[in-house]
Nucleic acid binder design. Structure first.
Length: 497
RNA sequence: GCGCCCUUCGUCUAUCGGUUAGGACGACAGCCUUUCACGUUGUAAAGACGGGUUCGAUUCCCGUAGGGCGCGCCA
């Protein structure tokens, strides 16, 4: 996925006279920077959405950088899942995805530069010693921080045989102030920030160094990420300043919690976006839902992605965490299903099938003839489905082969009374001159009226016989789509026993 | 433990000192109706608590409580 050619840093966009007015100081560049240690979870998806929406709103670019410097935990599968997830969600990035690991040499150089400037130093403490340090601090109820043992110690006193790490020499006095577009002005006392490791003993850079170097080199102007990075923002600012670089604009968005208010777990939202695809959600619906989690534009609830782009500002981002609510997502998804044109919905449905259990089989059974029937039934079906999974279930009767097996409720409908009504309906339908929904409806209604029956007394048994269930689209639509032969056949099947 | 942040109906949120505190989802009730939905009408439902500041606080400040995040040779 990340071939050598993919890892090149994309050239910065040249200010385009037609799209970037002269008064704009510089084009906006955002980035989404996931670490490939798992799938693209829902929080990451929203972060990507915000970065994307902001970049689009500003006529800027959103870059994608895979933070794969942890060689132990990064996997190719995760990278693939993240790219796939972003594509499914419709969040295309600009340029090629950048592998952070491909830039280690540059990161090491910057660590050297910091060393040269006296902004960093070698530390010879072993992991065991650091563990002991932490344990002791905890036991004495002191803040858990590196104690600065090697900060000012003469390297010539270094113990032999120990490969040192490089630590950043963080300012000890004063405070670091983050001007955050979502969080406001956040002040962190420097005494609470210790000397973080920027180069491991094996010579590989750590996250906080790499991000700063990459964001700077890639020309990132706006950093939008989760608040869990807020403390990192302070440390990173210190590195920016030590390097004499401009600090990008910062926006730390609140986190998404599970329905119970606690951290997202496997049970609820901590699923990959592919799980949402398998649950039958439409990308547009998920985008709309995610946008309303932590961001708002007045009372607007349902809006297109175009509107999101038009309206998106960092000021619209809130400060408090939101809970993930499947009921609302489902409602929105139902709205999107209902309002998607039939032919387009059919496309979504077909591309969804391979991702759901039993979907492959259905896809294989989908002959051109059946596809036509499905398309004709969609207006009735989509009105009743909140997810594509429900759509699949409700479309089953189209695929069913005679004789149909009935569910319990359908069976109950075909009691003696039901069968009697069905028999009458069969005669009326068999005699129908024109096989169309309206014509059949008129005929059956006339028959019901003549027999002094409520239409429901006939429609329900018909539904049971035709679909094998007690719920379906309008029964005359079902009849029309199924056609005379199949319809009469299904009814006759039930009349036999 | 230390630091930072958060707190409006059950949930997502509007409000940027003056509102009968609005909308949406969900819930409940009615209407529509061949089922289920859709649609539609209506109802219940909120400023965590305590102090200030102010003519006036949901809004500004302080404290308390509750919650979240961070404190790795992870990102």
């Amino acid at each position: 996925m990340l071939s050598a050619s993919d890892t090149a840093i994309p050239a910065l966009p040249q200010p385009n006279a037609t799209r970037t007015p002269a008064f704009m100081s510089s084009p906006v560049v955002t980035r989404f920077a996931p670490s490939p240690t798992g799938f693209l979870h829902i929080g990451g998806a929203r972060t990507a959405l915000f970065n994307w929406a902001f970049a689009k709103n500003q006529d800027g670019k959103m870059l994608l950088r895979i933070e794969d410097t942890d060689r132990e935990r990064s996997t190719e599968e995760a990278v693939a899942a993240i790219l796939e997830g972003l594509k499914w969600l419709g969040l295309e990035w600009d340029g090629a995805a950048v592998s952070q690991y491909s830039r280690v040499t540059r990161h090491r150089e910057m660590a050297e530069e910091l060393l040269k400037r006296g902004k960093a130093y070698y530390c010879y403490c072993t992991p065991a010693e650091l563990d002991a340090m932490r344990a002791k601090a905890e036991a004495e109820r002191r803040p858990i921080r590196y104690d600065g043992t090697w900060r000012d110690r003469d390297p010539s006193t270094a113990p032999a045989g120990i490969k040192p790490v490089v630590r950043f020499r963080a300012p000890q006095d004063g405070e670091t102030v983050i001007q955050d577009h979502a969080q406001g002005r956040v002040v962190i006392p420097n005494k609470d920030l210790d000397d973080l490791i920027i180069l491991r003993s094996d010579g590989n850079p750590t996250y906080n160094l790499s991000v700063v170097v990459d964001d700077h080199d890639m020309g990132v102007t706006h950093i939008i990420r989760g608040v869990d990075h807020l403390t990192n923002a302070a440390r990173q600012m210190q590195i920016y300043m030590a390097m004499g670089w401009d600090v990008p604009s910062m926006t730390h968005v609140p986190l998404i919690h599970g329905p119970d208010g606690a951290k997202l777990s496997k049970r609820h939202g901590a699923l990959g976006v592919e799980a949402y695809r398998a649950m039958g959600y439409l990308p547009a619906a998920l985008r709309n839902y995610l946008a309303r989690l932590g961001w708002s534009h007045g009372d607007d609830e349902i809006f297109s992605t175009e509107q999101l782009v038009e309206w998106f500002t960092l000021g619209g981002i809130g400060k408090s965490a939101a809970r993930f609510d499947f009921a609302k997502l489902e409602n929105l998804n139902g709205h999107y299903i209902r309002h998607t044109p039939d032919s387009e919905l059919l496309l979504h449905f077909k591309s969804f099938l391979p991702h759901v259990e039993g979907g492959e089989a259905l896809l294989e059974a989908l002959t051109p003839e059946l596809e036509t029937k499905l398309l004709l039934s969609l207006p009735g079906l989509k009105e009743r489905a909140k997810t594509l999974v429900e759509l699949m279930a409700s479309a089953r009767y189209l695929f069913a082969k005679r004789p149909l097996s009935l569910d319990d409720k359908a069976n109950a409908l075909l009691n003696e009374e039901g069968k009697a009504a069905l028999k009458g309906a069969h005669e009326v339908l068999a005699a129908a001159a024109e096989w169309s929904g309206p014509a059949l409806e008129a005929a059956v209604k006339a028959h019901a009226e003549a027999a002094g029956m409520k239409l429901g007394k006939i429609a329900q048994p018909l539904r049971a016989a035709l679909t094998g269930t007690s719920t379906s689209p309008g029964i005359f639509d079902v009849l029309e789509v199924l056609g005379p032969e199949e319809s009469l056949g299904r009814i006759a099947d039930q009349l036999k026993n």
